[in-house]
């Protein structure tokens, strides 16, 4: 069986398990909706701050929330791997003809699919709430790509971390330590121009912000395609690095058994 075929089988396996848990499915769709509505209401008046450069906060916020959801979805990916490690399922796969690269690709394919569906739901809801996505279909496509690239890169890193730490609590602590500050060291909720100078410097190196920038630039009335594509490229590079690192972590895990 080809690596591609194996990856597909593994993605299907994860999707089937998800669809069997209607409550989990409902929460995973409901949570981003809550964020969108809650943040949209809470920060409604920030558009009145001089220098915001727009008049609709929901328009500004929608790409930010889509990307935030992608980031958080990715950080949870390693938990499933730890569960499977504890249950003996991982060892079972590692002693079968399943290639580690297909095991990882199957997981990342699943993450990309789930995040894309969640993002579409949020975009639709943003539109209903009055967001004006001037960039149109092409802009939405870039936002979806940015969300999927960020989610898969983070999911890969989360898997690597799971292989290293091997404990759910440690993984959650480490992920939260990184993910939460990352969402605020960016222009997801506030334009870069309004943030202190040091945050403006830090956010340039924040992959979360790359994804936000890609989506927002592509959705603007006059899309800055160059900026959007550059940021997508940076996210793709991150994904490649993350996958390489995670495959190494699988090899090290085998060596430690």
């Amino acid at each position: 069986m080809t690596v591609l075929g194996q990856s597909g089988v593994m993605t299907a396996r994860r999707l089937r398990a998800l669809l069997r848990q209607p409550w989990y499915l409902a929460v995973s769709l409901g949570q981003p909706i809550v964020w969108l509505l809650l943040f949209g209401q809470l920060f409604r008046r920030v558009v009145q701050i001089p220098g915001f450069g727009g008049d609709s906060y929901i328009t500004f916020l929608t790409p930010g929330i889509v990307i935030m959801n992608a980031l958080f979805a990715g950080t949870w990916a390693g938990m499933t791997l730890i569960e499977e490690m504890d249950a003996g399922v991982l060892d079972h796969f590692l002693a079968s003809p399943l290639r580690p690269v297909a095991l990882l690709a199957g997981e990342l394919g699943y993450q990309a699919l789930v995040v894309t569906v969640q993002s579409l739901v949020m975009i639709a809801l943003g539109l209903l709430a009055g967001a004006h996505l001037a960039g149109g279909a092409a802009g939405v496509l870039v936002l979806l790509l940015a969300a999927a690239l960020l989610a898969t890169a983070v999911a890969a890193l989360s898997n690597a971390l799971a292989l290293l730490l091997r404990r759910g609590e440690s993984l959650i602590a480490a992920s939260q330590f990184v993910a939460l500050p990352a969402t605020f060291l960016a222009s997801a909720f506030m334009p870069a121009g309004l943030a202190p100078a040091w945050i403006q410097i830090v956010e340039r190196f924040n992959p979360f912000n790359w994804a936000v920038m890609a989506g927002r630039e592509a959705l603007a009335a006059h899309p800055a395609w160059g900026t959007a594509i550059t940021h997508l490229g940076a996210l793709l590079a991150l994904l490649v690095v993350a996958v390489t690192f995670t495959l190494r972590a699988f090899r090290d895990y085998r060596r430690s058994l």
């Binding site: 249950a87 003996g88 079972h92 002693a95």
Partner: peptide, 15 residues
């Protein structure tokens, strides 16, 4: 070439 039945079950409980 091999079949493996490990000490910890390799069965996926969610399937």
């Amino acid at each position: 070439a091999i079949g493996v039945v490990a000490q910890r079950s390799g069965v996926d409980g969610n399937a």
